[in-house]
Amino acid sequence: MRLLKRAGKIFLVFFLISNVILAFHAWKFTHFYDDAHHANKRPEQMNGWEKARIILFGVNLSKSVNSNRPAAPYKTVYLQTKSGLRLEGWFIEGPQPAKGTVILFHGYGASKSSPLPEAAYFRQLGYNTFLLDFRAHGNSEGHVCSIGYKEAEDVKLAYDYVYSCGYRHIILWGMSMGATAILKAVPQYRLQPEKVILEAPFATLTDAVKSRMWAVHMPGTPLAQLVTFWGGVEQGFWAPGFKPAEYAKDIHVPALLCWGRKDIRVMEHETRSVFANLGTAQKQLVIFEQCGHQSFCRNEAAKWKAAVGRFLQ
């Protein structure tokens, strides 16, 4: 009996310490710091010691910066969230009269300068473009990221701005977190884009956390579920219920879904799940054989431009 009690105490201490560590990881994963001189490394780029250190202590992530600016004339636009955060965007006119307006949403840890090549091609096709820094990214205010959950409001604000300017043929483009924010925002806020282009969205937030843990050789299950849970507790929402693949059922406009065969962050089964659930008959899936979790426009430009050009005809 005494041995069982001791074992129970050891297990309880281990359980509590483990959860404190995992809650700390969830905090680190969703909070950015003002340190423009620090270059964030992907887990797969770290050496053994660096991986061991972040397993135990986490890593400080620097807030992203806009490394480039549009080559074309642009207007800087400011939007405000319900919580009072100021978001910054760039509106760039295409050839006039424009066919419509494409709103571009970057991925986790990136900024609105990331999809400038995509925006340039959309303008070649005859569209205006509007690029937005999500909260806690680039020149937008805030230091807390919810990996797409609260960023859905940012998608709505960008859509409402473009709509208020009198533009009606609106297309939403998003990469990774940007794509998942679109999947959540469209049904939640009853947005009515003409089409959506979704690049590498994850199926569930737990899947996104799991892939990050695999990258540093940590077991994804059940640790990913616990990190996801604590992340939601810290930010005030039920994170295990954040399932973009489920939101896809309420997408009823033409949709183009893109995925890279070498992606180690979003698995093929996630992509297939999102695609199968899309609630529109007008949907296409394009797989980029030479790409990972990265810009398809930059890395397989000819194939990406051909796919997007056909989709927007």
Rank of each mutant, 00 (worst) to 15 (best):
T271I: 15
H293Y: 08
G279W: 11
G292R: 02
L278N: 01
L257I: 11
A276H: 13
E270F: 05
Q294L: 03
V266L: 02
L278I: 05
G260D: 09
Q294H: 01
Q294T: 08
S295V: 07
E270M: 09
L257A: 08
A281E: 15
R265G: 14
A276C: 04
T271Y: 10
R265D: 11
R272E: 14
Q290A: 05
L257Y: 05
Q284F: 03
I287W: 06
E289P: 00
V266N: 02
A281S: 15
N277A: 10
L285I: 12
Q294C: 04
T280H: 02
G260I: 04
A281T: 13
S295P: 10
R261S: 06
Q284L: 09
R265V: 05
Q294E: 12
H269M: 07
C291W: 02
E268I: 08
T280N: 01
Q290E: 14
Q282A: 14
I287Q: 11
E289N: 00
H269F: 12
V274F: 03
H293E: 09
Q284D: 10
G260E: 11
M267Y: 12
A276R: 14
E289W: 02
A276I: 03
V266T: 05
Q290D: 12
M267L: 14
N277W: 04
Q284A: 11
R272I: 05
F275Q: 09
R272L: 15
Q284V: 13
W259N: 10
G292E: 08
I287V: 15
E270A: 07
H293M: 09
Q284T: 15
E268W: 11
S295T: 06
E289A: 01
K283Y: 00
L278P: 01
Q294K: 04
L257K: 06
G292M: 01
